[in-house]
Design a protein around this nucleic acid. Structure first.
Lengths: 186, 186
DNA sequence: GAAAAAATTTAACAAATGATAAAAAATGCA
DNA sequence: TGCATTTTTTATCATTTGTTAAATTTTTTC
C-alpha cells in the first residue's frame, strides 16, 4: 500500500497538498516485537502502515489490547497528537512492518498553512471517531460471543494473523472465556 | 453559557472566523422529552447546548444510553455529519433546553473557505475522539462498580440530574445491577 | 394532600464470565 | 527431527451480572 493511496483513502487531496504531505514522509522498517510508541511519553511522530500489523495496548495488572492496525491504517498516540501529553498506549509490532513516518510538528505546520490539509486532518479524526464510537456501542449491547462473531465477520484476517490472547483482550474477556466461546460456536 | 465561549472552548478562533461561525448560528428552545435528533435519519443541523441536559440512545430490544450532553457540549449525529448517512442515535432532552443551532451545510462551506475554521473542526473531532477512546478503555478494564465510582468522581452532577435507569444503561449494566452496586458501596 | 404513576430497591435464582490449574496442541529452534 | 517454549483448550469452582417479580420510595397529577 503506497503513501499516496493511504492519504487519499483518508480524504481526497488536491495534488499540490498531497505532495506537500508526501514531502514530509519518510520510510522506515522495524521487525516483529519492536515497540513503536511507548506509554507515558510524548510521541513526536505518526506512522502509516505500508505493510504489517500492530497492536495498541495499555498496561495495568495485565495488558489490555484495544486496537489493531494493519496495512493502510494510521498509528498515532492521540493524547500526544491532540493534547501534547503523554499517551497511555504502547504500540507493539505483531509482524515485521514497513512504515511511513511523519513528524507531528511538520503536520501541524501544514495544518495551519493549507486549508485542504486541515480538512484532511479533520476527516481523519472524524473517521477514527466513528470507528471508536461504533466499538463503544458494540461493547455496550453485545455480549462476548456476539462481539467475537462480529469481529470474525468484519475482520476475519485478524484471526489468522493475531494470537487469541490478544483477540480476547481486545474483546474485553479472558483468553479462557474466548476459548470457551469458540468451542461453543463450532 | 454563550456561543462565543462554547466555540472558543473547543479551539480558539480569530475574531473574524468566530464571527463567521456565529453568523450561522440561531437560538432555539425545546422542552423536556423532545426528541432533538432521530435515528435512521440524515440530520442537517448540529446544536450547542446553552442550557439543559440531553442523552443519546440507541434502540434495540431495550434503549441503550451511550452519551450525556450538558451545557457547553455539542449535539451531533456523527454519521450524518461525517458520512452523510443516517445515524443510529436518538437524542432526547432530559431537561428543558436552550440550544444554538448550526446547519451542517453552512459549516461545511466554512470548512472549505477558512483554514481557522477547518482547524477548529479538526480540534472538535479530535477532542471528541479522545473522550470516546477513554470511555472505551475504561469499559475494557473496569468492572461495573469501578465505572460507577469513576462516573461519580468525574461527573457527580449527572447523578443529580439523570435518573438511574439511564445511568445504568450508560454504564452498560441493568438498573437492578446498579442498585445492587449502590447498596454495596454505602 | 391523596391517588396514580414512575422510579428505585430488594430478593431469589439463572446465566455469563473470571480465576486457577492442568492437559493438549502448536510453534520455534538447536 | 526432537526438545523446549508458547499458545490454546479443557475442567472446576467462584464471582459478577442478568432476569423476573414484588416491595418500597419518589414524583406527578388532579
Amino acid at each position: 500500500m503506497n503513501i499516496s493511496n493511504i492519504l487519499d483513502q483518508i480524504h481526497e487531496l488536491p495534488e499540490k497538498s498531497k505532495l506537500a504531505l508526501q514531502n514530509n514522509v519518510s520510510e522506515i522498517a522495524f521487525s516483529k516485537g519492536h515497540i513503536l510508541l511507548k506509554a507515558n511519553k510524548i510521541e513526536s511522530n505518526i506512522y502509516f502502515i505500508k505493510k504489517g500489523l500492530v497492536r495498541a495496548y495499555v498496561e495495568r495488572d495485565n495488558e489490555v489490547t484495544f486496537w489493531f492496525g494493519k496495512e493502510g491504517e494510521t498509528v498515532i498516540s492521540m493524547k500526544s497528537y491532540v493534547e501534547d501529553q503523554p499517551g497511555y498506549e504502547n504500540i507493539e509490532l505483531l509482524e515485521d512492518c514497513e512504515l511511513y513516518e511523519l513528524k507531528t510538528e511538520n503536520l501541524r505546520k501544514l495544518f495551519n498553512e493549507d486549508v485542504h490539509i486541515a480538512n484532511w486532518g479533520r476527516k481523519f479524526a472524524e473517521k477514527e471517531l466513528i470507528k471508536t464510537e461504533e466499538r463503544l456501542i458494540s461493547k455496550q449491547f453485545k455480549n462476548a460471543s456476539e462481539r467475537y462473531l462480529e469481529l470474525m465477520k468484519d475482520h476475519p484476517e485478524l484471526l489468522q494473523r493475531v494470537q487469541l490472547g490478544h483477540i480476547a483482550s481486545y474483546l474485553g474477556i479472558t483468553q479462557v472465556s474466548l476459548s470457551r466461546i469458540r468451542s461453543e460456536i463450532k
